Every structure is written in structure tokens, then in C-alpha cells.
Simulated scan of single mutants.
Amino acid sequence: MNFEKIKYKDRKTSEILTEDVPGEKFLKFLYYNPFGKLALNLIVKRKFLSSLYGRKMNSHKSVNLIENFVKTYNINMEESVKKIHEFTSFNDFFIRKLKPESRKIDFNKNTLVSPCDGKIFALERINDSSKFFLKGDEFSLGEFFKDEKLAKKFFSGTMLIIRLAPVDYHRYHFPCEGKILPSKLIGGNYFSVSPHAIKQNFRIFCENKREFSILKSKNFGDVCIAEIGATMVGGIVQTYKANSMVKKGEEKGYFYFGGSTVILLIEKNKIIIDEDILENSNRGIETQIKMGEKVGISI
């Protein structure tokens, strides 16, 4: 498979844009070079490398990286609660909180919203194949959950994959209101979750470290919210209170440094995905989205 730049669609302008990916040359080496693939399986996917890098991003010296990162990737610091000089480390900047008015949340009770900023890809039926992924890479709900009862519940349901790049806001929120159950942690590898990696192996979602919790909602039934670890992600932190009632848009947690992914699984016949997201996904293109934006309506 040839290396291709990551393309996505701007939801507001409908333009097809090319993503500026931090560390893209490194990803190209890892996933498109035989020596890179060897390093990937021997070293890069291991926890110690991501943990080591995470500690580096927690050091006070890492504050020197912030200003250049903001300028290079044109990050809007007007949205941030803290100013650049107030951060104590790069990770402190990475998990920055935004001013409430920075994200407009669709509070219509019949809508499901994006839990985070990123690029979204939809699979209307989980057991259906998609041109976006290589043939033969079967996504198994049983492997993903390590729980056959949950696998049966979400079989033939809808899957929304929201990919957060390192330049994105890295806190994630609840997509609808309901009762949130405790989070379950499943250990695993630390492969990249970029499209470069996913196109090579969709099973990464069943192999990487992940956490998931079930949100019991009135309009969408049981919604699974899963956070996927990835290369150079220093940690997944849950900030919510288990077994509590939560509102749409309330914070659920955050990722430390690195690109990451949030996956939503919705039961069969509970949601109609927005046409533009579905159309783009069917063409193999992700759609840029912000936390709080509508992604579908209840049936």
C-alpha cells in the first residue's frame, strides 16, 4: 500500500483538506517501511516508550515546547482558560480546559453530539465492511469488550470513531444525558491510531489499551463510550463520578499527550447518523467535528 497524505472534510465549508500531522515522517517509516514495522512491533507498541515520553511531557522543561507548537499548528489560545505562560508543563497545556463559550453544544434531547474535537468516521452497521479499511481486518466486538454479553448487545449497531490529533483539544465529554456506569480498563499495546496505522490494521482497536463505560440513556438506549490509548499517549484519565446522572456536554475525562481516539457504540436501530458524516464515511473520508456538534438523532 502506498503512503498517502491524510485527507478530511471541513464540515462548515465542505472543502477537502490535507491534515498537517506532527511526526508524520515517523509514522510513514513505522507503517510503510519493513525496518519501521520491525521497530514498531519490537519497541514502539510497548508501554514503556509511551510512559517515558509522557514523563518527559510532564517535566517543567517541556513548557519551552508550547509556544512553538501553538504557532506551528495555529492553535486558538483565546479558547483556553489558561494563558501560555500559566502552564507548568507541556502536558498541562495539552489537557487545557476551554472556556464554556468555546464550544456550542446541541442540547436538543433527541440529538447525540460528538464527545470531543477531532475527525469522525461512521460505520452504520458494525458488521458491514467498509472500503476505508483493508479487507480481512475483522473488528470483533467480543475481542473489543472481552465480554460476550456486551458484544451481543451492540451487534449490528452503529460505530462512531472520533480521532483526536495531537493538535486537538484533548478532553472528552458525554454525548447525551443518562446514568454513567463505572469504567472498565483493558490492557494492551500502544499502536498509533492515525489513519496510516488503521488502514494497515483495523484490529488495532481490539489490541490497544482501552477503557470503556456504558451510558444508560433514555433516547439512545445503552451507549458505549470507549477511550483508546495510542503511541505516546501518557494516560487516560476519567474525571466523572461512576453511577451518577450526567448531562450532555459534561466532562468525562481527558488524554495526556499524544493522538487518541474515542469510540461510540450505539445499539441497533437507535440512531440515524447525520447524512454528511455518513456520506463522507462511505467515501472513506473523515469529517472534522467539534465537541458538542450534532452527529445524529434518535429513532
Rank of each mutant, 00 (worst) to 15 (best):
L17H: 00
E124M: 13
V233N: 09
V223G: 13
G23Y: 03
V262C: 03
D137V: 05
E138L: 15
N208F: 07
I299D: 06
N269R: 08
G249M: 05
F191K: 10
F93H: 03
I126G: 09
L98K: 00
E275S: 14
G118N: 01
F145S: 01
I236H: 14
N282F: 02
R171L: 10
Y190I: 12
N201P: 08
R46M: 07
I105A: 04
S62F: 04
K9Y: 07
L278W: 05
I105V: 15
H196D: 00
I66F: 01
V21F: 13
A165F: 06
F26L: 08
I126P: 11
V167T: 08
M77K: 06
G188R: 00
V113H: 00
H173S: 12
L27Q: 11
H170V: 12
I285P: 03
N189I: 09
T18E: 14
K179D: 00
N41L: 07
P166S: 05
Y73H: 12
R11Y: 07
I180E: 00
K82I: 14
F212P: 06
I204G: 08
L160E: 00
K97S: 12
I289N: 02
V223K: 12
Q288G: 11
V237H: 14
F144H: 02
L112E: 02
L141C: 03
V167C: 01
M291Q: 02
K209E: 15
S260A: 14
Y32H: 15
F133Y: 13
M159C: 13
E293W: 05
P175E: 03
V81C: 11
L134K: 15
P22A: 09
M245C: 08
E207S: 13
S14D: 15
L65T: 03
M57P: 01
Q288K: 14
I16C: 13
V223E: 05
G259D: 06
I16H: 09
E279V: 08
L278F: 06
Y8I: 11
F121H: 08
L215F: 11
K82V: 13
C116D: 01
N68L: 05
V21H: 05
S156V: 04
E251W: 03
G118P: 01
F87W: 06
